[in-house]
């Protein structure tokens, strides 16, 4: 645990993250939701940076806050022809049930996390500071096979997406 890390920063980032997450849900406009999502992802990236995962923070911002959000916004734009207002808002009748369920789940998990009090809070092993080269070594050595498979997966997803979306604008 980095002593220098101020707990204030953590609480701030967590608050931003949760607030923007709620914003995704409660925004009337879908584009606003997407923007809130970008904010949420950036705050997550901040959290990553706090715990010695700077490369991941960069990845988070580039892939999530950049690509994914932009993709989703594009998608929203393409299907904008129907009115989004009616469908974008949460349905009143489901709110109670869903909030009860989600709340129970949250409290159960919190209960587990808090009662499991014997968690070690200090990393006794010092992690390398140069996370980029350490990650690279791991990826291309121990996780070589998984890395390749991930590449194949991305290729397959790309092809699948093309096949599925093909003709979305035709017709």
């Amino acid at each position: 645990m980095n002593i220098d890390l101020s707990s204030g920063l953590f609480y701030f980032l967590a608050a931003v993250m949760l607030f923007s997450a709620l914003g995704i849900i409660y925004c009337r406009n879908l584009v606003h939701s997407a923007l809130f999502m970008a904010l949420c992802f950036i705050s997550v990236a901040g959290l990553y940076a706090m715990i010695n995962a700077d490369f991941l923070a960069a990845v988070q911002i580039m892939i999530y806050a950049g690509t994914v959000v932009i993709l989703i916004v594009l998608g929203i734009m393409i299907t904008r022809r129907t009115t989004m207002e009616r469908t974008s808002m949460p349905e009143k009748k489901y709110i109670f049930r869903a909030s009860v369920l989600a709340g129970i789940l949250f409290f159960l998990m919190s209960y587990i996390f808090i009662t499991a009090g014997t968690l070690p809070t200090l990393n006794t092993v010092t992690l390398p500071d140069d996370t980029v080269s350490a990650l690279a070594e791991l990826l291309l050595d121990r996780y070589m096979l998984a890395f390749e498979i991930a590449a194949v997966l991305l290729l397959a997803a790309m092809i699948g997406a093309v096949v599925l979306a093909k003709g979305a604008d035709e017709k």
């Binding site: 991941l56 994914v68 990393n123 006794t124 699948g160």
Partner: peptide
Amino acid sequence: YFLPMPDLSGQVMILFSVAVAAAEVAVGLA
């Protein structure tokens, strides 16, 4: 970060997770 880990395997997992998530977004949007 917090558990006694000798290397950055957890972060590698996140990388894979991100890759899968990206694929998921692509297919999901399609």
